[in-house]
Simulated assay, not measured.
Amino acid sequence: MHSTPHGAAVTATGYGVQGPRGWAFRDIGFTAQPGSLIAVVGPSGSGRTCLLLALTGRMAATAGTAEVAGLPLPKKKAAVRAVTALAHVPGVTDLEPALTVAEHLRERTLLQRRFAPLPRLPLGGSPSALLRPRRERTAAARARIDAALEAAGLDLDTLPKGDRTAVRDLERPEALRLSIALALIGRPRLLAVDDTDLKLSDAERADVWATLRALAESGTTVLAVCGGVPDGAVVVRTAAPHGADGKSDTTDTRDDGKGAADALAEAGRA
């Protein structure tokens, strides 16, 4: 049982994306309840990243139907983007190596404040009632960052220079957790994570899955591209890549980091 209905239900039927080089993925069908841990597995080049982008409203599907939080895709892509967040997607959410952890967190918080929807003005209220003192805004931002870091399992005290540690000095699991924390600052209903367990040791992989499972159990739906299937996950399998003629095309590499960025360019950023 989940403690909150915060998470987004996800469904897909015959879902697919076809581009100039053929099908990125197709015939995807599954149903996941709010607060589910969804594992997307398949061979390299099978469109796992493209599926992640399509289900979060960043890419328009060309076949089938899907819904996220009751919002139909691709009709409501913008609304879906507002309730979802991406983490660790090569070519899309890359961290800046020269920036520190603190700088990344501060930047994301400012962006979140800049693009967050405006609160509703109470009937008969004054616009000044919507303005909070700077001290309150700073405290709220700090609380949001702390909550995101805790949920992502990133302890700043364990880093070489604390929050002044540059991204280039982070180990791979730490960089992954930072990317997840940045995504969680927006309090998404669905968190989508790419390359979740790539190049991790067995112990590191188990720790990351424990973190993502805890997120799901707390109510946030988690959609993760991975190599291994974690226990209790809703499994979505992508097939071997196909060309425009429907035949296997093992040279299609759109599912690597550059492929994700290329796919976004082909489809057009929504």
Rank of each mutant, 00 (worst) to 15 (best):
T4E: 14
A9I: 02
V10Y: 03
V10E: 13
G14Y: 01
R21D: 15
R21M: 13
W23G: 10
D27C: 02
G29L: 05
F30M: 13
Q33W: 05
L37W: 10
L37T: 13
I38T: 11
V40Q: 05
G47F: 11
T49M: 03
A54N: 10
G57W: 04
A60W: 02
A66H: 06
V68N: 08
A69Q: 09
P74A: 06
K76P: 00
K77H: 12
V80F: 12
R81N: 05
R81Y: 03
T84Y: 01
L86Q: 07
H88M: 07
V89C: 14
V89S: 09
P90D: 10
T93D: 10
T93F: 06
L95A: 14
E96D: 08
P97S: 04
A98D: 02
L99D: 04
R108P: 00
R108E: 12
T109V: 01
L110A: 11
Q112Y: 14
R114C: 05
L118S: 11
P119Y: 07
P122Y: 07
G124L: 11
G125K: 05
P127A: 10
S128A: 12
R134I: 11
T138G: 02
A140L: 01
A141N: 02
G153S: 10
L159T: 08
L159S: 10
P160F: 00
G162S: 08
V167G: 02
R172K: 03
L176C: 02
L178N: 00
A183N: 01
R187C: 04
P188K: 01
L190I: 13
E204Q: 15
D207E: 15
L215G: 05
A216S: 15
A224C: 11
G228C: 11
G228P: 04
A233E: 03
V235K: 01
V236Q: 10
T238S: 04
A240E: 14
G243Y: 00
D245I: 07
T251N: 09
D255G: 15
D256P: 12
G259W: 08
G259H: 05
D262A: 15
L264T: 03
E266Q: 07
E266M: 05
